[in-house]
Design a protein around this nucleic acid. Sequence first.
RNA 1: CGAGUCGGUCAGGCGAUCGCUCCCAACCAUCUCUCGAGCUGGUUGGGGGAGGAAAGUCCGGGCUCCGCAGGGCAGAGUGCCAGGUAACGCCUGGGGGGCGCGAGCCUACGGAAAGUGCAACAGAAAGGAAACCGCCCGGCCACUCCCGAGUGGCCGGGUAAGGGUGAAAAGGUGCGGUAAGAGCGCACCGCGCGGCUGGUAACAGGCGUGGCGAUGGUAAACCCCACUCGGAGCAAGACCAAAUAGGAAUCCGUCAGCUGUGGCCCGCAGUGGAUUCGGGUAGGUCGCUACAGGCAGGUGGUGACACCUGUCGCAGAUGAAUGAUCGUCCUCGACAGAACCCGGCUUAUCGACCGACUCUUUUU
Length: 132
Amino acid sequence: MEGGKQGCAFPRSKRLLNASDYSRVFEQPDAKASHRFLLLLARHNDADNHRLGLVIAKKNVRLAVGRNRIKRLAREFFRALPAADCTVDVVLLTRRGIDQLDNAEVSTILQQQWQKLSRQFPKPEPDTSRDR
RNA sequence: CGAGUCGGUCAGGCGAUCGCUCCCAACCAUCUCUCGAGCUGGUUGGGGGAGGAAAGUCCGGGCUCCGCAGGGCAGAGUGCCAGGUAACGCCUGGGGGGCGCGAGCCUACGGAAAGUGCAACAGAAAGGAAACCGCCCGGCCACUCCCGAGUGGCCGGGUAAGGGUGAAAAGGUGCGGUAAGAGCGCACCGCGCGGCUGGUAACAGGCGUGGCGAUGGUAAACCCCACUCGGAGCAAGACCAAAUAGGAAUCCGUCAGCUGUGGCCCGCAGUGGAUUCGGGUAGGUCGCUACAGGCAGGUGGUGACACCUGUCGCAGAUGAAUGAUCGUCCUCGACAGAACCCGGCUUAUCGACCGACUCUUUUU
């Protein structure tokens, strides 16, 4: 961890990697943001940064090209987020019809829903203030 | 110039910034030791990074495991001939049939004299068929008259040429023939059978022969014949470390049973078996991309393709990379995303370009 220009990169450590990571979020989410086209679930973690997981069902976005597009947009958005005091594991689920939107519209929705989610974070936790 | 046929190529370009993944090199940190390397993490630099269909998963292989992939039944598939291939249901060439003026295109194209089944409606009759109208002959009765016939009715027979029904009416057309008709006879065509010629063959040509009461259609209906096919799939499968490991108890058995085995039987191989209790893991590495490989040239072949030489290195992710934003140009960008790998088929698709060829009109 050499500091530097970290925060714009999106390495392995910023993703949810296995099934247990996912089920931890699903079982007890601390915050959620629901929208016509997507659903965000979040749970506080002990890592140094946010971690993202994507669940894009074939049922909701039929074409593989479409699923890839949504994933890339989501990663791009989370990559650009600034470092936060309180870090969470986030799972993004998509709903039907999201593949009809263009890139700009999806980015806007992601921005709105992230803000909505951020307000629900358990701010007053004493131990989470990390010094670096 | 216009209309069209066949084959092939490409799949927005350029620049800037910020990212992802793999490989290589250097450096830094950590650990290990046989002190030079190795392991892990990171930084910097360089390089590679979706498709013609990556798709549907419809065929065929390779590869892996099931000991070998053996025999029989069942089941599935293929179906003109020859060749190509690792193999195919693919491709090439050829033959038959159909369509088009033509370049060309389409073709599930074995068997209906082994058996079973099926065919609505109409029609007199529909498969060893059948006289409804009609046509013709004979007999009887009635009527008419030019006394030999005609007309009408009834009865008995002949007739598949004509009408009508139908998807289809039992070879077709023509001439002869006949009471009227009929392969009854003849010619041509079709069909069956037998030689002959050409061809590897499918098949074609021609000769003879049978008058054709016999052989109707349907086999993507059962079926028959010929040929092919063992089963599962990279979550195949192999390894590593940790935790299981390992076990414990009860019962039953010793030419049987069970497992491999996927439908069955035989064969073969392995093994004591069943139940209960307790305890758990579903992390990482390999498989994983270099081959039936691309490109160029040559040789053989009508061609699919084969062989030889040279040259190139061209994605390997694993909660799953190959992108985002901005600028700019143009013809304003379709269908669409690798997951073990190849060969095909099929389906989706904005357009652009190249080559060969055909037809119509005009001009020379």
